[in-house]
């Protein structure tokens, strides 16, 4: 039964199907925002299978083992993080106290894999992309942690179950976390490397950043990882900032879909509104604004915690 759950729901197969669906949704919203028709619903799947059919070229001077393993690592880390996030009830598959922290750390692994993939590729574009990916990690990671930990401080629990329990008891407290939610959305945009924080893979500057030397199946797996990351991050934000569930499984599942679609909708609109920032502008913005507001939020939450 447990193996079935890991494989089907909420595991591998659900994550795969839903990441294609959310990529489609992301692309269609982005297209409609730009007054375009957008792709047909099967486009993400078609792209994936087309890439699977392409030749894999490994640069001659690169360690073949690592070059092939890194996409798998990145995807595996995403899947592992996904298994700890509660989707349809307050408890995930393996709940324990402190699972929020574990998920955050697991989510850092894909970015590190992107960095390593670019670094070992030995190309100039991939090298620059790798350095930028790592620089960006330092810019968004701190505000993202702060934004996600602020609700946890208020709930006095490092676990999803605890957060859910607290906010079910005091639903009005969810409103306190709105600034943190906005920071989390912006930082998530950086985490997912989307405009305006897509400097690590800015196509007009450094081709495809860290993935420049990747092709065929390996690139397909990386693209798949990026899609899966979108699902995982959306689920994570939903679990922390909108932690309410229904008792019925079906209703709860629909609620989960609505929550994640809502978050991806915000992310997609956000993507269409701005020009890409330079890497040093990203760092300056994240440390100047996001961290400042994040700190205020944490102080506010601590005060509220003490007052009530």
């Amino acid at each position: 039964m447990e193996f079935f759950q890991m494989l089907v729901f909420p595991g591998l197969i659900f994550l795969s199907v839903y990441s294609f669906a959310l990529e489609y949704f992301d692309r269609i919203v982005y297209a409609r925002l730009q007054n375009r028709q957008g792709p047909p619903w099967y486009q993400p799947i078609a792209d994936f299978f087309k890439l699977l059919g392409k030749e894999v070229i490994v640069p001659a001077s690169v360690s073949k083992l690592w070059f092939k393993l890194l996409p798998v690592f990145a995807y595996a880390a995403n899947l592992a993080a996904f298994l700890y996030i509660p989707l349809t009830s307050a408890n995930s598959l393996y709940p324990f106290s402190g699972d929020l922290i574990v998920v955050l750390y697991l989510l850092t692994i894909p970015t590190l894999c992107f960095f390593l993939a670019g670094y070992i590729s030995e190309g100039v574009y991939s090298g620059l992309g790798a350095v930028r990916a790592l620089t960006q990690l330092f810019a968004y990671e701190v505000p993202l942690f702060m934004a996600l930990l602020a609700p946890a401080i208020l709930a006095d629990s490092w676990s999803f179950a605890g957060i859910s329990a607290y906010y079910s008891a005091h639903p009005i407290m969810m409103l306190v976390n709105i600034p943190a939610f906005i920071i989390a959305i912006i930082a998530a945009q950086g985490k997912l490397e989307r405009t305006p924080f897509d400097a690590p893979e800015a196509e007009t500057e450094i081709v495809a950043g860290a993935f420049t030397e990747y092709s065929g199946k390996l690139l397909a797996l990386f693209r798949f990882t990026v899609d899966a990351e979108l699902v995982v991050v959306a689920s994570l934000l939903a679990a922390v900032f909108l932690p309410f569930y229904a008792s019925n499984f079906i209703i709860s599942f629909i609620l989960y879909l609505l929550k994640t679609v809502f978050i991806v909708f915000i992310l997609a609109v956000f993507k269409g509104l701005m020009a890409r920032l330079r890497i040093e502008q990203i760092v300056a913005f994240c440390w100047k604004w996001l961290i400042g507001i994040g700190l205020l939020q944490i102080v506010l939450n601590v005060i509220i915690k003490g007052a009530f």
């Binding site: 919203v29 297209a31 409609r32 925002l33 730009q34 007054n35 375009r36 028709q37 957008g38 609109v269 269409g272 509104l273």
Partner: peptide, 12 residues
């Protein structure tokens, strides 16, 4: 941009 999401696309 936001109202554009709900408009008819310009492309054919």
């Amino acid at each position: 941009a936001f109202p554009t999401i709900f408009q008819k696309p310009a492309t054919v």
